[in-house]
Computed example of a mutant assay.
Amino acid sequence: MKGYSPVLSTRFRGIRMTRNNPETNSEDALSNRLDIIIMLLLDRQRTQDKKITKADQIRMLYSGGLKSVEIGKLIGWPDSAVRTEISKMRRDKKK
C-alpha cells in the first residue's frame, strides 16, 4: 500500500492501546487504579451511611465533573440509567 501511514490511519480511529506505547499503558493503568479507589470509597460510604443512595452518589460524581459513562462504570449501572438519574436531578434543580 503506497502512501499508507499507520499514524494517519489511527487518527481517524482514535488512539488504540498497544504494547509499544508505554505512555498509553501507564495512563490506562493509572486510570484503572483510580477507578478502583473510587469504587472502594463509594462502597465504604454506602456501608457506613445507609441513607446514601446510588442517586446521591451519581449526584456527587456528576458534580465532580465525571461523565455519565464513567459514573456508570464506577457504580455498576448502565449509562442510560445514569443519564436518566442526571436528567431527574436537573429537573428537580429547576423547580
Rank of each mutant, 00 (worst) to 15 (best):
M1G: 15
K2F: 07
G3P: 02
Y4Q: 02
Y4A: 00
V7W: 00
V7I: 09
L8P: 00
S9C: 06
S9T: 13
R11E: 09
F12N: 13
I15V: 07
M17H: 08
R19F: 13
R19P: 05
N21V: 06
P22C: 03
T24N: 10
N25Y: 01
N25G: 04
E27M: 10
E27R: 11
A29T: 08
S31R: 15
D35V: 11
D35S: 15
D35F: 14
I37T: 14
L40H: 15
L40S: 12
L41Q: 15
L42H: 03
L42Y: 00
R44M: 14
R44T: 15
R44N: 15
Q45K: 13
D49H: 10
D49Y: 10
K51I: 04
I52K: 03
I52V: 14
K54E: 00
A55Q: 06
A55I: 11
Q57P: 03
I58E: 01
R59E: 13
R59T: 10
Y62G: 00
S63A: 13
K67N: 09
V69M: 07
V69R: 12
I71T: 04
K73E: 08
K73Y: 06
D79A: 13
T84Q: 15
M89Q: 08
R91P: 01
D92G: 03
K94L: 10
